[in-house]
Amino acid sequence: MKRKAFLIDTTRCTACRSCQVACKQWNKLDAEATVNRGSYENPPDLTPLLYNQIHFIEQEQGDDLRWLFINRRCMHCADAGCVKVCPSAGALYHTKEGLVAYNREKCIECHYCVSGCPFDVPRYDAKQKVTKCHACSDRVQNGLLPACAKACPTQALSFGDRDQLIAEAKAAGKKLYGENDLGGLGVLYVLDDEPGTYRLPKNPAIPASIFFWKDVVKPLGILGFWGAVGVAALHYVTIGPKKLDDADDQPRKGGE
């Protein structure tokens, strides 16, 4: 099975947000009460009922203005912090297609994945189970496109074999974000500016301590003996300041 991925070409996005709704429709996610905060962007952040969202970013360039749109969601990292950190085997996992899916029955409600994610993606729902974009793994397994990618009218969102998406984008002279980060992201972006402008970390990384957890503590956990120590170490990692790249320091322009 070839690794699958999304390619999000921000230069084609019109922010129609069919991705947001198509996702909710397929995954049967209820709407939430929102208010207008002086922005088209709503809901304001990913929630247990919102697996992907469009950011609206205004940017002045001399006399001209740019209005940038970007779809934000789980990045389906190869080297996925959430999978690494998850103490419950099979709760968060890579599918055959290389996408990060989850089994809610196995989720033990620890929230560690939240801290293990450099993109602030996993959310916990009312039942305290993990939720996030799972790339419509049920659809993909059955040969269908994820609901969002199928709905996208302008091919801003495409889904397919990762190698092929990369090759085609490069052939078209497009610069990619996420090709090699974290073992290669499962969501690749074509951007029209620096990643920070799009609220993306320039060099996304899992906090170093997570490696310690994954590669040292977690295997030892088999022995049971180290378990509690491991969790304590993880506690430090997860409660400690999580440092994303300075994406959020970008000045947010009015009316975004």
Binding site: V21, K24, Q25, D30, A31, A33, T34, N36, N42, P43
Partner: peptide, 9 residues
């Protein structure tokens, strides 16, 4: 509701 959620006001 899905549409109102995005543009509520």
């Amino acid at each position: 509701p899905w549409l109102l959620e995005m543009q509520p006001q």
